[in-house]
Design a binder for these strands. Structure first.
Length: 721
RNA sequence: GCGCCCUUAGCUCAGUGGUAGAGCGUUCCCUUGACAUGGGAAAGGCCAGAAGUUCAAUCCUUCUAGGGCGCACCA
């Protein structure tokens, strides 16, 4: 026994050596694996955002996906786990904005090209860090196929998809009311909006002959109409008429319209219509375009009052330039002075749209943006993107784990609205659209001719990552696409079911005609032992690399997988990791025992299993069967727990103890040789079964067990149950 | 409003149509030659409540209570 095979187990020295051995063997690459006949098994790694180090949540997906990949590889499949990194558009922009802020700089003052270059270097650096972290976590992914979402070939695929959507009439540019974050100076899609409950004063204000209720007092300058329910007896006679109202900017006239959207029960049953600053009002205006004036914007991109259009009117200068909330307060006071305020309900609670990143209240604005039509039929097929997404799942082409996520997916699909894919940031794939007057050109190459100007916006990062499975495999022309698509499993967090998974299904189906993956495995969020979400601000984060260094990667992986059922959050604590560090040590010590006693291999002709031995072996094969069944059904947590229990409380506690006496017999006796054979049988099998979960220690032990025929455990055959 | 989920040992969670398991924690014993990052033993649960289906329910159905979450609307 080599000197380093001592107690206790020291992962720090073992792990880097083992990983190097694996990587140099080339077997992470499925092309190097076995015969041509074997089936492929593909997982495309959800590309981590290249804007920081990996956190414990990443370690969860690494563990799960590596378990699947290693298992399938041992089952003889051509296992491909394709790694990647995401430029993560807006997310990275936010991270980088913060960095700039600390340095006393602002992205709005840096030329586009310069900022791009800086951010490119920033992500490149992060990528390198991440790659090494993935290695430390034991990820058996094929580095030769690694992709970045800003690789030229990926961008080309994304451009092609956009062009196709445009040609099919699904991608369109329109002036519509969108979610605007005044801090980040960009629009956000509907899924990026976080709704919060908020208590705000509800103002009952006098508009000539009627009184109406509103929270957004400051938008009154942008009113273009007043709406009531068409059947509301109280106001029926006013519909279609202009009413004269007193405002803080002097008297004016405004039209009353009837629309069913108005709830007669709410407030006074009268609504002011401000199409420039309210999504509903925008819809009302679209319906009543012929009757009422167009949207009148009174708030600018920074969330300040912009009354330039009324600047000659009395008082206009007073409010012009004020922040929304300041303006609201002042208008409240002034209206009270003028006797225009009937009452104020201070107990009114409603939900407001906020930016999911910074929490700032979003300011709806009308802007020219690119949208993807989600419900519009595509050409002759008469099917919309939504139809594709719904159908694929309904037909069972994609299996959800846990299955209840399918319902959530369907429910979301039902409420789909068109997707705003324009972002007013620098970091991302720039939209390949050019304008010249009213002409629009969409294409991969710059248009010919003079006077074209490219759209300044970039794509929503989820638009490109929504194409990741086929893009990363080199669609359409590559061999990899032919061999490995559709992929087998997509494994990611349930929190991005809508952001990412739904989009991948729709875009994958749309572009390639096939679903992007057969199974979608959704893991939960990592929480600490008090069930709190881990976050830097709470100071309860566990750094996966830190604990790996301390307790060993195998222990961390076990702690992350046990108790980790699909769709449910995972609770992890250092105590739990320590528990599995003890288990690793147990494996190590049991291995030391077996190895010392089997230095001379058992003499096969002397081996005679007694009925009790056979019983034990039967238990082993039953366990093997159970574990395999769990693996096949993606119940990795069960497989891991079964193995843990079996190794410790049956194999170590019972079998090894039982064999100790027999090992005191002379060499060459049936007792001793049988004991050796039995121990080896157990050990070989258990190392294999444990390998997907605890790859490092099992591989290291394997190297000692397999003295004559030195192969890698990583590519050994999974035990036949 | 529409929809999803949870309620099992002190804690965190598994699980099964035939009256329950793990880890951690707790108590007691043991430094025996793989292992004290250990071994052995033990305590601890009418599986939220009620009704129904069934020969049989913690597991299926319905309702109730408490908790979590998603979506939509909100003037």
């Amino acid at each position: 026994m080599p000197s380093e095979f001592e107690k206790p187990y020291d992962p720090k020295t073992v792990e880097p050596e083992i990983y190097k051995k694996w990587e140099e063997s080339g077997f992470f690459n499925p092309d190097k694996l076995s015969s041509k006949k074997s089936k492929p098994f593909t997982i495309i790694m959800p590309p981590p955002n290249a804007n920081g180090a990996l956190h414990i949540g990443h370690a969860v997906f690494v563990t799960l996906q590596d378990i699947m990949t290693r298992y399938q590889r041992m089952r003889g499949k051509k296992a491909l786990w394709l790694p990647g990194a995401d430029h993560a558009g807006f997310e990275t922009q936010v991270v980088y904005d913060k960095k700039l802020e600390k340095e006393g700089r602002s992205r709005f003052k840096i030329p586009r090209d310069e900022l791009w270059k800086e951010m490119w270097d920033f992500t490149e650096e992060n990528k390198k860090v991440m790659e090494n972290q993935l290695r430390k976590l034991g990820a058996s992914c094929d580095w030769s196929r690694e992709k970045f979402t800003l690789n030229p070939d990926i961008i080309e695929t994304v451009y092609d998809t956009f062009k196709k959507l445009y040609d099919d009439g699904l991608a369109y540019r329109d002036n519509r009311i969108v979610n605007w974050c005044t801090k980040h100076q960009t629009t956000l899609s509907d899924v990026e909006v976080k709704y919060i409950e908020k208590k705000d004063p509800l103002y009952y204000i006098k508009y000539g002959p009627v009184t109406l209720a509103t929270v957004r007092l400051e938008t009154k300058f942008g009113d273009t109409a007043v709406a009531v329910h068409p059947k509301d007896k109280r106001y029926k006679n006013l519909i279609g008429k202009e009413i004269e109202i007193k405002t803080l900017l002097g008297p004016t006239k405004i039209k009353v319209i009837g629309d069913e959207i108005v709830d007669p029960e709410f407030g006074t049953g009268v609504v002011k219509v401000t199409p420039a600053h309210d999504p509903n009002d925008f819809e009302i205006w679209k319906k009543h375009k012929d009757e009422i004036p167009g949207p009148r914007s009174v708030i600018d991109q920074y969330g300040r009052m912009d009354l330039s259009a009324f600047i000659d009117r009395e008082n206009a200068k007073k409010y012009h330039g004020l922040k929304v909330m300041e303006a609201r307060k002042l208008i409240e006071e002034d209206m009270q002075k003028e006797g225009l305020m009937e009452k104020i309900d201070q107990e009114y609670t409603h939900t407001v749209a906020t930016c999911y990143k910074c929490g700032a209240i979003l300011e709806p604005r009308i802007l020219p943006q690119w949208f993807i039509a989600m419900t519009k039929p595509i050409g002759k097929t008469k099917k919309s993107l939504r139809d594709l997404g719904v159908e694929t799942v309904k037909k069972g082409e994609i299996k959800f784990l846990p299955s209840r996520m399918e319902k959530i997916y369907m429910h979301w699909m039902k409420n789909l609205r068109d997707w705003n894919i324009s972002r007013q940031i620098v970091w991302g794939i720039r939209i390949p659209a050019w304008y010249r007057g009213k002409e629009i050109y969409v294409g991969k190459e710059n248009p010919s001719g003079e006077g074209w100007e490219q759209d300044r916006d970039v794509f929503d990062t989820w638009f490109s990552s929504g194409q990741w499975p086929f893009a990363a495999l080199g669609y359409p022309g590559s061999k990899d696409f032919k061999n490995f698509y559709p992929t087998d499993v997509m494994e990611t967090g349930w929190d991005i079911l809508f952001f990412w998974v739904a989009r991948m299904v729709m875009l994958g189906k749309y572009r390639t005609g096939k679903m992007p993956f057969r199974t979608i495995y959704l893991h939960g969020l990592v929480r600490d032992k008090d069930r709190q979400k881990m976050s830097k601000s709470k100071g309860n984060v566990i750094d996966p690399l830190g604990v790996s260094e301390l307790y060993g990667t195998d222990a961390v992986r076990m702690a992350l997988i046990i108790g980790n059922t699909p769709g449910n959050d995972v609770v992890i604590s250092e105590e739990k990791i320590r528990g599995y560090r003890n288990f690793a040590n147990k494996i190590w010590n049991a291995s030391r025992f077996v190895i010392t006693h089997t230095k001379t291999p058992p003499e096969k002709n002397k081996v005679k299993y007694a009925s009790k031995d056979k019983e034990m072996l039967k238990k082993l094969s039953n366990t093997s069967k159970d574990v395999t069944k769990h693996m096949e059904q993606c119940r990795f947590y069960q497989a891991a727990e079964t193995l843990y229990h079996f190794f410790w409380h049956f194999y170590a506690d019972k079998v090894i103890e039982e064999m100790k006496e027999r090992l005191t017999f002379e060499d060459g006796t049936a007792e001793k040789e049988t004991a050796k054979a039995l121990l080896l049988e157990f050990h070989f099998t258990l190392m294999k079964l444990l390998h997907p979960f605890m790859p490092f220690i099992t591989e290291r032990v394997w190297q000692e067990l397999n003295l004559n025929n030195r192969t890698l455990l990583m590519i050994e055959t999974w035990p036949q149950p």
